[in-house]
Nucleic acid binder design. Sequence first.
DNA 1: GGCCCTCTTTAGGGCCTT
Length: 321
Amino acid sequence: MKAVMSFSHFLLPRCQIHTAGSWWKKVHDFSRKVENSSKFQSLGPNICSFHGFHSKRLNNIEGKNIISRRVNSIGQQIANLTHSSLNSSRVEISECKSVHIEQKIVENDDTTKPITIIVFDTETTGPKRKDDRIIEIALQDLSGGKNSTFQTLVNPDRIVTNSHIHGISEDMVCLPEVPRMEELIPIFVQYVKSRQKPGGQVLLVSHNCKSFDFPFLVNEFRRCSYEIPSDWHFLDSMSLARAVKKAEGSELSSISLQSLREYYKIPLIGQAHRAMADVNVLTQVLQKTTHDLKLTSSSLLKNYAFTETSNNSKKKKKNSR
DNA sequence: GGCCCTCTTTAGGGCCTT
């Protein structure tokens, strides 16, 4: 018999810039909890601190001492920051009340390898992956529970050319208290690891992932001398949307996230093109599409997912033709 | 840029993401 994994839809707080001055404290609290938890310890010592993992790569880069000092001092910064020094919360790791909704995705048959599905979205300074930078990231672990969502603005140290799209301006991100990518990556990786079940797999889902979010993430990781963890699997939900559109009798007009939202009559909570608002929509779109296509989480992983390694191999094959 | 579709595959155009 196939087990059934319920998706939960999380209510606010999510789509807002949250209240005063708690973002570093929340990261700090989160880090401390994760470090102290037996679950986290079981994931391996390299993940247990901000500075511990991928240190070989980090030590090879120019200015390593500066970055190491910054990463190492995050805890101290958190402790030192006062509410009066911050105008708004930039990072949010939240504990949310969950609301069970009807849509479910059929869990994989192979229950020995539980799959953590995390929907994510990024906002950037522009559409060019080589030149532009990430300025906002939001994630939502569909298994729900404590700390199931994560969102943050990111300081890109450059002009934001497309505020008209997402409403994020330089005034909001080019601030000393907003974390830069090199500071955020360890926290980001640690968060994902903390959601991964022991011995399980992780599947990161976004819309247009292959051509947009994934290459942006790869570039940011490389720029900061980190590597995408080899056990991270990615899924582009556009491939599911194409399958739904192609299905007989489908009235889906296009495979954009907006069209999918309208097609499935999903209400928009928050501002479209803000990371967490889009994550909310995609979470529900994913439930609907997997339901329509009768896909299990293991079939998602097997038939639709890719890793950085598999993606590179495919590119090499293509280029060698 | 990657993917899909077609007026195709020795290619070109449109969609999608910001």
